[in-house]
Simulated assay, not measured.
Amino acid sequence: MSEDQAVTGADAPSRRALLLGAGAVGATVALGGCGTGNDKDLGDGGGTGSPQSASGSPQGGGSNPGAAPLAKKGEIPVGGGKIFAKEGVVVTQPTAGEFKGFSNICTHQGCPVSSIDAGTITCTCHFSKFSIEDGSVKGGPAKRPLPAKDVKVEGDNIVLA
């Protein structure tokens, strides 16, 4: 059979088979874009992960001995902070020697926060602003604060607790 001849008869795929195949490919592509594979914590306190205490740490977890350091104390500016996207945490230092941890996911629509300036953590998706002191909303559209994440100082290092 030459390349320009149409496939007909028993060798031709049915219209139903072609449509089902195209639908299966489309569904696979659509579902592949639905998530990152890690939907345990959307940062809004309503995730599907393990139960959490009011401070945002897993209940019954205790300390995290030997945890990899997030940063050195000197790397977190007083009155500012630093975003650790891979670890899902924002570490701030509202006053000298006081370190706070918060989720890096905005409670408005789940975008990662992107900057810290003038005492606020900002999500540039819709410009919600949160306090570096307690994660409270300083400017909407977010209505809920950033959930706290426990951090602690071990020597000169800041680690997740």
Rank of each mutant, 00 (worst) to 15 (best):
K82S: 13
G47L: 03
Q52S: 11
G49L: 02
G139E: 14
A148H: 13
V151N: 02
A68S: 14
A96G: 15
K138Y: 02
H126R: 02
A24W: 09
A67K: 09
S136K: 12
K73F: 02
D117A: 15
Q109N: 13
P94I: 12
G140I: 00
E154R: 08
L31C: 13
D44Y: 11
A118G: 15
S115W: 00
A148C: 09
I132F: 08
H108D: 03
S128P: 03
G101Q: 08
I76W: 03
P112L: 13
G26S: 14
K82Y: 06
I132G: 05
K138V: 08
I116E: 01
I83A: 03
E133T: 14
P69F: 02
F130A: 09
V91H: 06
D44S: 12
K73S: 08
G80V: 01
S131C: 08
S114K: 10
A24I: 13
A85L: 14
G66P: 00
C123Q: 04
L70Y: 09
K86F: 08
C111H: 06
V25W: 12
V89R: 10
I121M: 05
A96K: 15
V91P: 01
T122Q: 10
S50L: 14
K143A: 15
F102M: 06
F127M: 14
S136M: 04
G110I: 03
G110N: 00
G139C: 09
F130H: 07
N38R: 09
N64E: 11
V89S: 11
F130R: 07
T120Q: 15
I132R: 08
D39W: 12
T36D: 07
S103F: 04
V113Y: 09
G135T: 04
T120S: 14
G139Q: 15
V78W: 04
S115Y: 00
T95R: 11
P147A: 13
A85S: 12
V78Y: 06
E154Q: 12
G49N: 00
G60C: 04
G62L: 02
A68P: 10
A71G: 07
G74V: 14
D44I: 13
S131T: 04
H126W: 06
H126C: 01
G140D: 05
P69K: 07
K82C: 10
G45H: 05
V91N: 02
Q59L: 13
G88M: 02
V153M: 06
S115T: 05
A142N: 00
I105W: 08
I76S: 05
I83E: 04
F130S: 07
I116T: 01
K73N: 04
F130P: 06
E87Y: 00
L70T: 09
P145R: 10
I83C: 03
P77Y: 08
A118I: 09
T36G: 11
K82P: 10
A30P: 07
G46E: 12
F127W: 15
G60E: 08
G45L: 01
P65N: 02
S63F: 05
D41A: 10
